[in-house]
């Protein structure tokens, strides 16, 4: 499979409800190789442009405020919360990621970024 199968994929939570779309994928180097650590999921289109797994924008302050506002609904999905993932049925369509837990149980991206810092 490819990274393109995950980026922009529809994310369904444990109840089958739409949790959002994948806006970014976090990769971590390990002794065994470069592994997918988890997904950034955003429910709103505005957040998809700004919710990246990267150091949060702090300065200048106005950009920091815009970045926080755009990504405040973004959630962090560790890879072990992914129950299954399906590639697009046809090229150009969206893939699907299914979680093993409810959307309410997902950690806000900002909290996860603080742990990584």
């Amino acid at each position: 499979m490819r990274l393109a199968d995950l980026i922009d994929a529809l994310v369904l939570d444990g109840a089958g409800d739409l949790a959002g779309r994948v806006t970014d994928v976090r990769l971590v180097e390990t002794a065994d190789g470069l592994v997918v650590d988890g997904l950034v999921v955003s429910p709103k289109r505005r957040g998809r442009l700004l919710a990246w797994d990267h150091r949060p924008v702090e300065r200048p302050r106005i950009l920091g405020a815009i970045a926080r506002a755009g990504s405040r609904r973004a959630r962090w999905v560790p890879w072990d919360a992914v129950a299954s993932h399906e590639p697009p049925g046809r090229l150009g369509d969206l893939g699907t990621v299914r979680l093993d837990r409810a959307s309410a149980d997902l950690v806000p991206l900002a909290d996860a970024q603080r742990e990584w810092a």
Partner: peptide, 15 residues
Amino acid sequence: ERAPGRAYSARFHWL
């Protein structure tokens, strides 16, 4: 340099 423990954003660092 690539090294164990280093983390990336796929969209920012790779694509």
